[in-house]
Nucleic acid binder design. Sequence first.
DNA 1: CTGAAAGCGCTAACAA
DNA 2: TTGTTAGCGCTTTCAG
Lengths: 329, 329
Amino acid sequence: MTAAAHRPATLEDVARSAGVSRSTASRVIAGTGFASPAARERVAAAADRLGYVPNPAARALVRGGGVRLVVAVAGPGASVLDDPYVHRVVGAAARVCAPAGIGVALHWLPLGERSSLDRLAGDGSVCGVVLVNTTEELLEAVPRSLRGRVASIGIGSATVPSFDVDNDAGASEVLRHLYATGRRRIAMVSGPRWLPCSQRPVVAYRRLMRQAGMPERVLPGDFTAASGRAAAGEALRRWPDLDAIYAISDETAFGVIAALRDGGVRVPGDVAVAGFDDIPLAGMTAPALTTASHPVGRIAAAAATAVLDRRPAAPVTLFPSALVARDSA
Amino acid sequence: MTAAAHRPATLEDVARSAGVSRSTASRVIAGTGFASPAARERVAAAADRLGYVPNPAARALVRGGGVRLVVAVAGPGASVLDDPYVHRVVGAAARVCAPAGIGVALHWLPLGERSSLDRLAGDGSVCGVVLVNTTEELLEAVPRSLRGRVASIGIGSATVPSFDVDNDAGASEVLRHLYATGRRRIAMVSGPRWLPCSQRPVVAYRRLMRQAGMPERVLPGDFTAASGRAAAGEALRRWPDLDAIYAISDETAFGVIAALRDGGVRVPGDVAVAGFDDIPLAGMTAPALTTASHPVGRIAAAAATAVLDRRPAAPVTLFPSALVARDSA
DNA sequence: CTGAAAGCGCTAACAA
DNA sequence: TTGTTAGCGCTTTCAG
């Protein structure tokens, strides 16, 4: 453990200090190729003595590997980068990448703009891309050269493996819970129309409603609490007989509950409310939110790992969604 | 706009295509040094045609600049990396770094372990470090070679500039609000004892209580809702005459409110509760949380920018905390 | 098993 | 104003 010199120690320094050539030192450090036990030990000792840390940038340069993993978030505006969900993804990815000496960058992908993806593909420092909130259009625009080092959290395509929560099963479970507890006039607040993966729960909802002979009532939202507020007001106006609202995100559900409360509607007495995601605070509010928990961190870690390892991933990897029945429904 | 070739275009490709030397191309692309308008234009055209993107890794290698900014979070366990606050910091940093071709890595810094910092300093690919939740001990262990490219979100030192919210003013404002609305027996739920910057509000609290001749009642917490629950129970037991609880984080405040509710104590009727941070949901709950809003994203962005630009920052940069009076207090 | 040599993509003296 | 020449720190043939 040496006081870090002003200039970081290089492999050359280690080699000299160990009395071997740079190649030998490289083989030992990288753990690749042959080296005598003696050489192995001397190099290890020298590296330790000098506080040597391999430079991933130099390594990437010669290997053509890249040094950053880009989390690319599609959306109508750059403000999508402020989303807590996105931050969770970036945090999980950064954690997975750190040991490999890989950094994470956060980019906004304007909807329907293919040049951004081309730029990423043409950047030799980019080792891979994790797409968030993708559209079919964007998926089609993924350049050939990105294949094998791109993954999507959300919908995928033939060339882009998808890592996502089992939206269909999750939504169905919540809906069945609502049904089992006697709710028959269930409205749904959906995600933004441009986001395909948020349509999955809507499809499940419609199917279930039809099967049960219950009315289909879908209102558009955008994951925010504000959109939940607005949707709840609208729902109350259009369907006074309403007895449940299923929101596609917890934030939205909280907005729904707030609007209901303002309108003098009791939750769950008059109207049950369920969310989706199970954010940390979901269990602390009054009423505590009934929702489905999603392993966002694990999903992001899996996507990042697939990209890092260039491991040919299954076309679709689904993560389980688990109903958390609390007070609101 | 060329379909990204399998191998990203290099400066050499651009130079050849423009009919100039690599150096000239470099000067034009990097915007440094001289170049005739003619050359300038031809290089620009070639770069555009080839979809050329400079490779930050190669650039960093020759300039000795590094390619990753490390967000190093101190704490007793690696689980500190799961914190939403940390994710916000990483997200903001990643956003600031992306245009420069710099990635962000997330590291856990075990309390009192100096070798981690030495490793970071000895890694040539690290362009800088943003410390989160630092201690004096860790600050002292910052290697010389990191000076000028390290910043702290929290307390700082002579060599490490600090970027933080004005904890003192923020806490005072909340406390004064509590006082102004008639509260006289105010308990405080503090942050973890090992975290110096979380002691600041406690100091402010003690000073104010003393000045007003009010009792000092501090209970330890750790920012989590669970610790808020526990602290509230304890507070009720020890101080039955309590009329307000000030929690050092919104999560904790929500835990406090939940415990109070469970105990049949009305908020704010019997006991007022105030938080700290103003998380997005603070305004949606019942009662809506009175708290102080903190520009976490801006703070993180400022710290990251200071490190990136190697700009000699002021020893301490304080960001304003703004009281948001809602229903809970 | 080891070392010499070439080169990843780029910048920065230096000479022309 | 431009091109030539050295590297940045590392891996990787290819000879020894």
